Simulated scan of single mutants.
Amino acid sequence: MAARRNTTEDEPALIWERPEPPHRPVPSPLSRARIVRAAIDLADTGGLDEVSLRKVAATLDAGPMRLYGYVATKDELLDLMVDAVYAEITPPEPTGEDWRTALRSLAHRTRQAALRHEWLADLLGGRPHIGPNALAHLEATMSALDAAPGFNDIDTVMRAAGTVHAYTLGALRTEITGRRAERASGMTEQQWQTASSPYFARMLATGRYPTLAKIMHEAAHPDTDTTFDTGLDCVLDGIATRLGSECR
């Protein structure tokens, strides 16, 4: 079992409020920012399985025990990594855009960040992220809705924000799972379709799957960018329709 740093009764338990150790210039200067950056680089290259305090310490040419002064557990490190990516997603200042434009922009920025850091989709969802950058993202989302006509109470704001978040997360996980499967198989999407098309042709020829046959032969099959945009617009249109003409 990995060692972990003990905290005193007066020391804040959460990483967000716990001070860093005093600066030590030698032999290898450390900071939470450097530790998190190294962990993100490891995850970007090899996935979350590559992230451990031992591997991060080796990357920074530091002893693992030194890292426990900055980060007590791997869970804390993962929380810090997610919060660092939220800083890439959230605009530094409110944009003043209407609610649809604001939520569309945040969804696109989330997608772009997740495609840069595929591991992010594995950590979104579940328990809320409460780091300062995650809270800024949540504030940007909620404030865009709270100030808009038609969103007359905070419960409506939360339901709408949750719906957009659920769509964005689901779409990202589907897209990233597809990218991972493509890399694991060694085949591009086109190569996979070519290899599997004889099987599909035989199955569709049975007549048991008429709707799937229609999809195969008649659907547009847009690229991932268009698919994400179209789905997001359906969600936003649904929210506007539910709340009436005021918020359109």
Results as ranks from 00 to 15, higher is better:
Glu118His: 10
Arg24Thr: 11
Ser52Pro: 05
Ala147Phe: 08
Ala147Asp: 07
Leu78Val: 14
Pro25Lys: 14
Thr230Glu: 10
Tyr68Val: 02
Ala13Asn: 01
Gly126Asn: 03
Val82Ser: 03
Pro210Arg: 07
Thr188Cys: 05
Gly231Arg: 06
Pro128Ser: 13
Leu67Lys: 11
Tyr167His: 05
Asp79Gly: 10
Glu139Pro: 00
Thr211Lys: 03
Pro94Glu: 02
Ala140Arg: 02
Glu93Arg: 13
Thr188Ser: 15
Asp153Gly: 09
Thr73Val: 03
Ile154Asn: 12
Asp237Leu: 09
Trp192Tyr: 12
Lys74Pro: 00
Ala220Lys: 10
Leu145Asn: 00
Glu118Ser: 06
Asn133Ile: 01
Val56Gln: 03
Thr230Gln: 11
Ala181Arg: 07
Val51Ser: 04
Asp79Tyr: 12
Arg100Ile: 09
Leu138Thr: 09
Glu88Ala: 07
Met216Gly: 03
Met203Asn: 07
Gln190Arg: 11
Arg180Ala: 12
Ala87Gly: 08
Leu232Ser: 06
Ala114Lys: 03
Leu53Lys: 12
Leu124Thr: 03
Leu115Arg: 12
Arg18Ser: 13
Val56Ala: 05
Arg32Ala: 09
Glu9Phe: 13
Gln191Met: 08
Arg66Pro: 04
Met187Gly: 00
Gly207Ile: 01
Asp155Trp: 14
Tyr86Ser: 01
Ala220Asn: 11
Gln112Gly: 01
Val235Thr: 01
Thr163Ile: 08
Thr177Leu: 14
Asn152Thr: 15
Glu20Phe: 03
His23Ser: 09
Asp41Trp: 03
Arg242Tyr: 15
Ile176Phe: 09
Asp41Glu: 15
Arg109Glu: 08
Glu17Phe: 15
Ala114Glu: 00
Ala84Gly: 01
Arg183Asn: 11
Ala3Thr: 04
Val36Leu: 07
Gly69Phe: 12
Ala39Gly: 11
Thr188Leu: 06
Arg34Asn: 10
Gly244Trp: 12
Glu218Trp: 05
Gly46Thr: 06
Leu236Glu: 09
Ala220Trp: 13
Arg208Ala: 15
Thr226Val: 14
Thr163Cys: 13
Leu204Cys: 01
Ala213Leu: 07
Tyr86His: 11
Leu30Lys: 07
Leu77Trp: 01
Ala84Leu: 04
Leu212Ala: 09
Trp192Ala: 13
Asn152Phe: 09
Ala72Ile: 10
Arg183Gln: 15
Leu243Lys: 02
His217Phe: 12
